[in-house]
C-alpha cells in the first residue's frame, strides 16, 4: 500500500476516534485510555531500541564471532524465539526476585519484550547482511579494507535498507505484545480498557476505542518505516546493486 492510502487510513482512524468521543462518556474513556497508551508508547520505543541493539549484536556474533560468541548468540536467539513471551515476562517478574534480582514492572516490560523481539530481529539482521552481494565483500578486499571497516562502511549500510520492512513488522509485533505487560501489574492501554470496562460495562465503545488507538500507533510505525526506506533508497539501486 502506498504512503497516501496509509496516511488516509491513519486520518480515518483519528476521525473515527474524534467522532466517537462526541457521544456519551466516550471522551472520558478516551482520556483514560490515552494515559495507558502513553505507557504503551514508552515500552514500545525503549523495547524497540533494545531489540535493535540485541539483534545486531547477536547477528554479528553469529556471523563473525569466535565459536563461544557464536554459540552464545544461537542460544539467545533460540531461547527467546522458542519460549512464550508471556512466560518470559512472568519469569523475569516473579522468578528473578526469588534469586534476589527484582526490577520494577516497567523495566521488566522493556527488557522482556526487547529481548524477545531482538531474537527475531537477529535473524532479520543476519539475513540482510548475508543478502549483500558477495562482490561487495570482494571489492572491499581488493581495496584492502579490514572486515570491520567493510562491515561498517559498505555491508551494513546496504543491509540496512533490506532490513527496514521486516523491522517494521517486528516493531508492530512489539507494540501489540505490550498488552502482555497488563498481566504484570502495568496500566498500559489494554489494562486501562479492561479496568474502565469493569467499572462502566460500556464494552462496545471502550474496546473499539482501544482497537483504534492501537491501529493509530501501528500505522504511525508503518508510515515511519516507509519514509525511512524511501529516504535510504534515494539515489541507490532499488534492492541493492551488485
Amino acid at each position: 500500500m502506498g504512503m497516501f492510502s496509509l496516511s488516509a487510513m491513519l486520518v480515518a482512524a483519528l476521525i473515527a476516534i474524534a467522532i466517537m468521543s462526541l457521544f456519551g462518556d466516550n471522551a472520558l474513556f478516551m482520556s483514560g485510555l490515552l494515559q495507558g497508551a502513553w505507557l504503551t508508547v514508552q515500552i514500545t520505543l525503549l523495547g524497540s531500541l533494545l531489540a535493535v541493539i540485541m539483534a545486531t549484536t547477536a547477528a554479528l556474533f553469529r556471523l563473525y564471532g569466535a565459536p563461544p560468541l557464536r554459540w552464545l548468540a544461537v542460544t539467545y536467539v533460540e531461547f527467546f524465539r522458542g519460549t512464550s513471551a508471556l512466560v518470559q515476562l512472568f519469569w523475569l517478574f516473579f522468578v528473578l526476585p526469588l534469586f534476589g534480582i527484582s526490577m520494577d514492572p516497567f523495566s521488566v516490560g522493556v527488557l522482556g519484550l526487547g529481548l524477545n523481539i531482538g531474537a527475531y530481529g537477529a535473524e532479520v539482521v543476519r539475513g540482510a547482511v548475508q543478502g549483500v552481494h558477495r562482490g561487495q565483500w570482494e571489492a572491499t578486499t581488493a581495496l584492502n579494507m579490514t572486515r570491520w571497516q567493510a562491515l561498517k562502511r559498505i555491508i551494513l549500510p546496504q543491509a540496512f535498507v533490506a532490513m527496514i520492512p521486516p523491522w517494521g513488522n517486528l516493531f508492530i509485533e512489539l507494540l501489540k505484545s505490550t498488552a502482555l505487560v497488563s498481566l504484570i501489574t502495568m496500566s498500559d492501554l489494554t489494562f486501562r480498557a479492561k479496568t474502565i470496562n469493569d467499572t462502566t460495562m460500556q464494552t462496545i465503545p471502550i474496546f473499539t476505542l482501544a482497537l483504534l488507538t492501537y491501529l493509530v500507533m501501528s500505522l504511525t510505525i508503518t508510515i515511519g518505516m516507509r519514509w525511512l526506506e524511501r529516504a535510504s533508497l534515494r539515489g541507490m539501486v532499488r534492492g541493492r546493486g551488485r
Binding site: E138, A139, Q158, R242
Partner: peptide
C-alpha cells in the same frame, strides 16, 4: 588493485 567484471561499485 582489481577491477571486476560486474564493477562491484558501492551502490550507496
Amino acid at each position: 588493485g582489481m577491477v571486476f567484471q560486474h564493477f562491484n561499485l558501492f551502490p550507496h
